[in-house]
């Protein structure tokens, strides 16, 4: 464990908590893409299948459980409890356009052709593009609530910090996982224009609006 990965995990945890609290406290999931949340729940499900078979540390197991519980709780709130506030008219990105190519790629490009490894690879590739429905929804509505932009900033920062962690681990341990690194770079690049808007607008107290 290094400080970059710890900060990355905490940023990820913060993002998940921010979103869950936003939906719970405002009793509304307006402006939030349910499809992205379903994809994230799928990412954690396919990545943490070794939760009970491969104990790393209390921290590792606790975080995996928290991510799983919070992501499913968010999906539940959005599609059941606060379904009336779910903006399905703007959340129209076709998830199959992501899941199918990512599933095929996981079969073709992986470290080991075993079920657990292919599912892990699938989760890595899927996580890289899982935010697209959310970014697409914001581009359609042309704006995002400030709390949603904080959620996205924390979520985008997590994988950016993981990239720093991978550089650090490469130079200190000689460890690197090309699949995770390439997917992590793609994932972070997708946030770039949002990062720009967040820093130039939200941090100046303005509403996050996309140029129409």
């Amino acid at each position: 464990m290094n400080i970059f990965r710890l900060l990355g995990d905490l940023s990820h945890l913060l993002a998940i908590i921010i979103l869950l609290l936003k939906i719970w406290r405002t009793r509304s999931c307006a402006g939030v893409s349910g499809k992205s949340q379903i994809l994230f729940a799928l990412v954690f499900t396919t990545r943490y299948l070794d939760l009970f078979t491969n104990f790393i540390s209390m921290y590792n197991s606790a975080m995996k459980l928290i991510y799983l519980v919070c992501s499913y709780a968010t999906v539940f709130l959005m599609y059941f409890k606060f379904k009336a506030t779910y903006d399905s008219n703007h959340d129209t990105f076709r998830m199959e356009f992501l899941v199918v190519p990512v599933g095929g790629l996981a079969f073709l490009v992986n470290h080991d052709f075993t079920p657990l490894e292919i599912l892990w690879t699938f989760s890595i590739y899927l996580e890289a593009v899982a935010i697209l429905p959310q970014l697409f929804m914001i581009s359609k509505t042309g704006e995002a609530e400030t709390i949603t932009s904080h959620y996205l900033f924390a979520l985008g920062s997590y994988r950016a910090l993981y990239i720093v962690n991978w550089v650090f681990r490469f130079y200190t341990e000689g460890f690197f996982d090309l699949i995770a690194i390439v997917a992590g770079c793609v994932q972070t690049i997708l946030y770039c224009d949002f990062f720009y808007l967040y820093i130039t607008k939200v941090l100046k107290g303005k509403q996050l609006t996309l140029p129409a």
Binding site: S57, N60, Y67, T114, E117, A180
Partner: peptide
């Protein structure tokens, strides 16, 4: 081989 490396990252 890569899968010997324990996946310790979240």
């Amino acid at each position: 081989h890569n899968n010997e490396i324990i996946k310790d990252e979240l």
